[in-house]
């Protein structure tokens, strides 16, 4: 039984390793796993699956033992997508590495045309700016969608606030946390802290009363006013995600377009599922979703997504 595939980017030859450790050549280069050929003969990088870039210290200790045992140079690398990579691993030892990783519950990541491991910032669990539980969402996406075949790679990320550390504008599909602020006149003392705290000039202070004059057009929905308000006159009305589609980096970077300005947590799985379905139905092999959207038209996608994105009124509305 074949349980892993190895991608050789220079020759496009794929080697399959079976459970007994015996190797045979397989030309099915579609199903490549998280093994990346290095310059050095017979040596590969083993990419681990770390959704949101989070690992328990317990697991990290065990991974470091395995890395120390199998990396010919005794080094690991933090990938640009938050996965830990064990470098300089001999392909003849793949079965053993995978077996030892499996024992500690650590999976190998992927490359190739499929849904990749999601990335995420710290989110609202411990980051003071965080508005959404990005780690929980990344875990959900990893469990539900990881490895789903798509026409080309499909990268997702979750940022907990408009600072957007997880770079949702560069993802095939990105989710950025937002909060819709609401203001109650009765509890406001006109102290003007909110207008000082707002970095977007979306809140002016009334010259006589000091009370806020809110401009939703300028607002990024970051929640600074809510956190700064001493009397809880500014409150969170609802939390959600801005959804962005069609971004990428690489040789020809593209900026993602905003397709939904306020999607609640519970609608995220459906939005991803529908987007993957649209991409698989409309994308050509080897074409990223951003290019598919350009070719087929954003309207086509938006029409398809209407059942998910409808009734998600813009924040501040």
């Amino acid at each position: 039984m074949t349980d892993h595939f190895i991608e050789d980017k220079t020759t496009k030859v794929t080697v399959a390793v079976d459970n007994t450790g015996a190797q045979k050549v397989d030309f099915n280069d579609l199903k490549s796993g998280g093994f990346i050929k290095q310059r050095q003969k017979d040596l590969f990088t083993v990419r681990l699956r770390c959704p949101g870039g989070r690992l328990s210290t317990e697991k990290l200790l065990e991974i470091s033992k395995i890395a120390h045992k199998y990396s010919k140079k005794g080094v690991v690398h933090f990938s640009f997508r938050q996965s830990l990579e064990i470098l300089y691993v001999d392909y003849k030892e793949f079965s053993n590495v995978v077996a030892e990783l499996e024992k500690i519950g650590q999976k190998v990541a992927s490359c190739g045309p499929r849904v990749r491991v999601p990335t995420a910032c710290g989110g609202c669990e411990y980051n003071p700016n965080g508005l959404t539980d990005t780690q929980k969402m990344a875990d959900m996406v990893d469990k539900t969608f990881f490895g789903t075949p798509t026409p080309h790679k499909f990268k997702t990320s979750f940022s907990g606030c408009p600072i957007d550390c997880a770079r949702t504008k560069e993802m095939d599909m990105g989710f950025q946390g937002v909060v819709d602020p609401t203001w109650e006149e009765e509890s406001c003392t006109g102290c003007t802290i909110c207008s000082e705290a707002c970095k977007e000039d979306a809140i002016a202070s009334d010259p006589d009363t000091g009370k806020p004059i809110f401009d939703p057009v300028k607002c990024l929905f970051c929640g600074d006013c809510i956190r700064a308000c001493p009397t809880e006159a500014w409150k969170p009305k609802r939390y959600g995600h801005i959804v962005r589609i069609g971004g990428k980096h690489g040789r020809h970077p593209m900026e993602a377009v905003e397709v939904c300005s306020f999607l609640p947590d519970e609608k995220v799985p459906e939005a991803i599922k529908m987007t993957i379905d649209w991409y698989n139905a409309n994308g050509k092999r080897g074409e990223r979703i951003g290019n598919a959207l350009k070719r087929v038209g954003l309207d086509n996608y938006l029409k398809y997504m209407e059942p998910v994105f409808q009734n998600t009124a813009k924040a501040g509305a």
Partner: peptide, 17 residues
């Protein structure tokens, strides 16, 4: 922009600004 929200998070009350 920063200090009042941190004071609030610590549980203290800002009574006047």
């Amino acid at each position: 922009q920063n200090v009042p929200k941190s004071i609030k998070e610590e549980g203290h009350k800002i009574v006047e600004v």
